[in-house]
Amino acid sequence: MTLADLKPGQSAHIKHIDTSKPGVIRLMVLGLIEGAVVRSEHAAIGGDPLEISLFGASISVRKQQAAFFEIVLEPLCD
């Protein structure tokens, strides 16, 4: 499962990142690193780009790049 598959309202933590893919490092600089717990907020119309929040801070991620972030779902907590 990748970040691109995360539905609005779901939480997950990042397991593995393919750093060789274009644009991935730019997102890592915003804090998407292995172990980070992320939550999918809303997406734009058509489900892309995604709004991902981590530690209360929201960032925008295109699905194309989100697919390079492997995730593990977190149990629902709220």
């Binding site: 274009p22 644009g23 780009p49 709004e51 960032i59 925008s60 295109r62 194309q64 790049q65």
Partner: peptide, 8 residues
């Protein structure tokens, strides 16, 4: 393709 990277 450039990356669309943006904090909201």
């Amino acid at each position: 393709k450039p990356v669309f990277m943006l904090a909201l």
